[in-house]
């Protein structure tokens, strides 16, 4: 038997995670959809009827960050921790399933809920107010802009995932503080070291736009992998 990785164990662990949480996930989906309907209505009113659609927007980011920060909440309860840690799966498999749950499954769940909210707002509620002009659904999405957002969100979620296993008690609060710290460090690195301006007097590294983009992608990937690795390490060392 492969002690580190087994497709069979990944399958039953995923089934276990999904079936334990499906009712909660459904509630999240419905609340998100309702919330996003109201959000898009509000934006439409604010922008005079023009409300371009962004799949990754502020409510989506906040929801995903919150969900990531409570991924390992079960470890805060000794008996819950006992049940989870003694589940016959390797730590690597448990982290892999958690990463998939938060970074893929919840991402899709929340974005789809947001999209449906936009549909309801644009085609069900706004037409009731016939004097409002409705912008086409998904008429324009800045893919590059969206790509950067998703990349940064991936980093943020991976940091929150680590925080949820490191700060078992008051996970959300400490996760939020860690997330803010990660954002500040990223901005500092960007402002203090990297620059596309040819201003040598400020001893910046002068880089082309492509180089900055490549560095940014590499940096985000590295930070994400780092936090996933730290999550694995921390879970391996967790006692209950």
């Amino acid at each position: 038997m492969n002690e580190l990785f087994s497709f069979h164990r990944i399958g039953i662990l995923s089934q276990n995670t999904f079936l334990q949480n499906w009712k909660k996930d459904l509630r999240i989906f419905l609340c998100m959809m309702g919330g996003m309907t109201i959000w898009h209505l509000f934006r439409a009113l604010l922008y005079g009827g023009y409300a371009p659609y962004y799949p990754v927007n502020f409510p989506v980011v906040i929801t995903l960050i919150c969900l990531a920060s409570i991924t390992f909440k079960k470890l805060a309860n000794p008996s819950g921790g006992i049940m989870y840690l003694t589940l016959p799966a390797s730590t690597f498999e448990k982290v892999l399933v958690s990463v998939f749950q938060v970074q893929v499954y919840y991402f899709l769940l929340v974005v789809v809920a947001g999209l449906l909210g936009y549909f309801f707002a644009s085609y069900v509620f706004l037409p009731l107010f016939s004097f409002w002009h409705v912008d086409g659904v998904v008429s324009y999405i800045d893919c590059e802009h969206m790509g950067w957002l998703i990349l940064m969100l991936t980093v943020g979620i991976s940091a929150m995932l680590f925080a949820s296993v490191y700060f078992v008690k008051r996970a959300f609060l400490w996760s939020l503080l860690l997330g803010i710290a990660v954002v500040f460090v990223t901005l500092w690195i960007d402002g203090a070291i990297l620059s596309t301006k040819e201003d040598l007097s400020n001893y910046h590294f002068v880089l082309s736009h492509s180089a900055v983009k490549a560095l940014f992608i590499m940096g985000c990937s590295f930070i994400t992998l780092f936090f996933w690795f730290m999550t694995w390490l921390r879970l391996r060392e967790t006692e209950v």
Partner: peptide, 26 residues
């Protein structure tokens, strides 16, 4: 090390139990 091979052969029933909000069948 909490390897799966060992975990498959042990069961820990604590004094204070944790049960998920699911049916017995589930």
């Amino acid at each position: 090390l909490r390897r799966p091979k060992m975990l498959e052969e042990i069961y820990f029933l604590p004094e204070e139990m944790y049960v998920p909000s699911i049916s017995i069948q589930e």
